[in-house]
Write a protein that binds this DNA or RNA. Structure first.
Lengths: 243, 243
DNA sequence: CGGCTAGTTGAAGACACTCAACGAGCGTGG
DNA sequence: CCACGCTCGTTGAGTGTCTTCAACTAGCCG
């Protein structure tokens, strides 16, 4: 892996990690217990290192144990779309073509277990885990299709923040005051948020500023976000029944 | 199924089937050979009938044997996003929440086999089929996220037409002259195409008209499309390396 | 024939993008 | 220690693409 073929990530995507003690608290499971099996291997990836690139031969499927990663694709003219945010318990690398269909890059120090494709076929324990996790992945991709296809910029950002608050893509310092306030560290840059939401960084920035003006979120540094009024954030997300 | 709870499809989505002899030639497999197992059941759905709605209890997972269907979600204010186009060999209905996360509606007369969730866990033959098909599904959803997040209206329509030509969502009358011309019947309305591509029907119509003016496609009736210059269509899709 | 729906086209408007400038934070190096 | 350079984030002005609203046509079915 990390063969870096034709369309590797451009230098503009090689930002540094924003917090050295960082862990991506996906699914509120900081460390996922992986099943061991023949041909399962453990890997460690440093912050901002490449797990694999689009077009690489696909030998195995992956399970994130600790840390987090971005899955993205870059179009021939340079447009980038972040397709998935990956955290502990997330699986990735499945393909039917024999080649990976996107790039995966570790966000912070990340532990990953890989399983040979044959292991997946032969060991029902592993297969059951992947079946379950792939089902969850498909549901997440459905949500994201609705966001990308039908939501306004403000709705996208609000939905994204709710995703973070619910335990995904935030650090372990999520302080959930059930009165409606929650605080967490933002581990993605505005550019990365934009590439995930199908927007530009300027538009993301404007949406954040608007939410701050409205008193829905609060922050001084852009890396440390407080959700002040989670109810209004929900209403701004487009998913609230009220509307 | 077909319990039709809170958010059923509005009357504007209840268009008629466009071709009675219709079959959705997904994956070029007109009739998919299903594995039989305990608690597998065969179903038939008439054109435009509901397989299940968002929020319905999820008892089973589904495999399309023949025909086709749309999976979509409707936002509280009525915006609709078609998330998947389903054809023979496609699986759907997987969920982790116990409730379906979207509506599924048959496009034409459609045969479906359902498998109880326990069957999926106990029978490795079935599980292997679903594992493989779910991997393909995830790759398709990745493609669609790039389309929805980063492509222009014209690129979306061009990509969509290429999808049809490659064997998905076209009828069995795909006449593939390898010189670059292909002809097929369009089984989706402009509204449905728009809801799949995250656009409005007017924008889809304008893109079709533009492609016709450019001589890339040709049609008299909107249901019967001829791709005249597939190379130019590829270049218009945004995926061509050339750029 | 009349009514309905789907598709097309035009005109006007809105939302997000592009381009540009500026400031804050951070790491480096003098 | 401070100056410098770099990146990231923010904000403004102008533009462009897609949407919205509207009118009109064609086809279908009663």
């Amino acid at each position: 892996m990390s063969l870096d073929p034709h369309s590797g990530p451009g230098p503009e995507h090689l930002a540094r990690t924003r917090d050295p003690r960082w862990t991506l608290g996906f699914n509120r499971t900081e460390c996922f217990a992986e099943p061991t099996a023949q041909a399962s291997r453990r890997h460690r990836f440093a912050a901002r290192s490449t797990v694999f690139n689009e077009g690489d031969d696909a030998h195995a499927v992956y399970l994130i144990i600790e840390g987090g990663a971005l899955m993205y694709r870059i179009m021939p003219d340079g447009r980038r779309q972040i397709i998935e945010l990956l955290g502990p318990g997330d699986v990735f690398g499945m393909t039917t073509s024999g080649r990976h269909d996107a790039c995966v890059e570790a966000l912070g120090p990340t532990r990953v277990t890989s399983y040979d494709q044959r292991t997946l076929d032969d060991y029902c324990v592993v297969q059951q885990l992947f079946t379950e996790r792939m089902q969850a992945k498909i549901c997440q991709l459905h949500d994201h299709a609705v966001l990308l296809g039908r939501k306004s910029a403000m709705e996208r950002v609000a939905t994204f923040l709710l995703l973070l608050v619910s335990g995904r893509a935030a650090t372990d310092h999520v302080d959930r005051g059930d009165a409606g306030a929650a605080r967490f560290d933002m581990v993605l840059t505005r550019q990365e948020i934009a590439d995930y939401l199908g927007l530009t960084p300027e538009t993301v920035s404007r949406a954040f500023s608007q939410l701050r003006r409205d008193g829905i979120v609060a922050y001084d540094r852009s890396e440390e976000i407080t959700i002040a009024q989670i109810g209004r954030l929900r209403r701004a997300s487009g998913d609230a029944g009220h509307a």
